[in-house]
């Protein structure tokens, strides 16, 4: 059984990695957009597994993007290094925020993270124009890999793989017991010797670094940053909807949710260019109303009946 599982995973990996050889530019572009949102959705879910609800994706996504772009503008070094720098900066900032706020719980932590994107946006916009480009942002001389779609796809695919591997490490290692215990009952977790604060900070920093990594890659791919666009609440809400649709507290729920919502959005747009967003919104509402455990929950129910 385990051999079959490994075989299926290897086949899926090979199919995904070789996609640029048999797929057109537009489909590839659409797929790597979906993969970016997928990475954000998985990273959001990783923190949720520890019982912490975050609305701060957009803030860390934007920080990663701005850090990468500013390093690129000031030093003109390899964009891949800039992307790593963006991720590290998002991680460092989240460490500071985490140390200050992760003693808060439930709605209080959620509110803090909700404010993050807005606070970062205001700071970035009010820094000198020569640093951040002010309200209009910065345009880079060129996109990463000179806009080559295949290489861009592999970059985003690599980021997604890192996210999936980390998420699975969270699920399959001892960390899983720690975070599940924290989520279920903090008093029991503490009495079991789990340092709750330390683990929450570690998880928050890891997930924030991933979100910063995606944000940094995004700005290098599209060659620009803009405070309104890169800190848009959209980057917090869509990954959240994807995770809810697919099913929370697993790696594959957000993956399924991102594929369904991402492809549905594109397909509906081609089918009915005017007003497809109404149908798109209705799908999200209906699924959340009638499938509270998401598509993964439905799959589990169906397989259990059998």
């Amino acid at each position: 059984m385990k051999i079959w599982k490994a075989f299926v995973i290897a086949a899926l990996f090979l199919a995904a990695a070789s996609l640029p050889f048999y797929t057109g530019t537009y489909l590839l572009h659409t797929i790597y957009i979906i993969m970016m949102y997928m990475s954000l959705a998985i990273s959001w879910d990783m923190l949720l597994r520890a019982g912490q609800l975050s609305f701060g994706i957009a803030g860390l996504f934007g920080i990663g993007g701005y850090a990468a772009t500013m390093l690129q503008v000031f030093t003109n070094i390899n964009p891949l290094i800039c992307i790593l720098f963006g991720a590290i900066m998002a991680g460092l900032i989240s460490l500071l925020i985490g140390l200050a706020t992760l003693r808060l719980r439930g709605i209080y932590f959620a509110i803090i993270t909700l404010a993050m994107a807005e606070i970062f946006r205001v700071i970035i916009r009010n820094l000198p124009d020569t640093w951040t480009g002010g309200a209009m942002g910065i345009v880079l001389n060129n996109a990463i890999f000179n806009g080559d779609v295949k290489q861009t796809y592999w970059l985003v695919f690599g980021i997604l793989l890192i996210t999936i591997v980390l998420s699975e490490v969270f699920n399959k290692s001892r960390i899983h017991f720690a975070i599940t215990s924290i989520r279920n009952d903090e008093i029991v977790a503490m009495s079991s010797g789990i340092d709750i604060f330390k683990w929450l900070v570690v998880i928050f920093v890891i997930t924030s670094t991933l979100q910063g990594l995606v944000g940094a890659a995004y700005t290098e791919i599209y060659g620009s940053v803009n405070p309104d666009a890169n800190f848009s609440v959209h980057y917090s809400l869509l990954p959240l909807a994807m995770a809810l649709l697919g099913g929370i507290r697993s790696t594959w729920g957000p993956v399924i949710g991102a594929i369904v919502l991402g492809l549905a959005g594109e397909y509906l747009k081609l089918l009915m260019p005017y007003g497809y967003l109404i149908i798109y919104g209705l799908i999200i509402i209906l699924v959340i109303l009638f499938l509270p455990d998401g598509i993964m929950g439905l799959i589990k129910k169906l397989t259990q009946k059998k």
Binding site: M136, G223, S224, A229
Partner: peptide, 28 residues
């Protein structure tokens, strides 16, 4: 303009005749 900023690298890739009616932010 915000959307157009992200389109610039792709437009440069194809270099087809492009006649744009929006995006007035000169600095970017």
């Amino acid at each position: 303009s915000g959307v157009h900023m992200a389109q610039l690298p792709v437009l440069k890739k194809y270099a087809k005749p492009t006649v744009w009616i929006g995006a007035a932010a000169s600095s970017v």
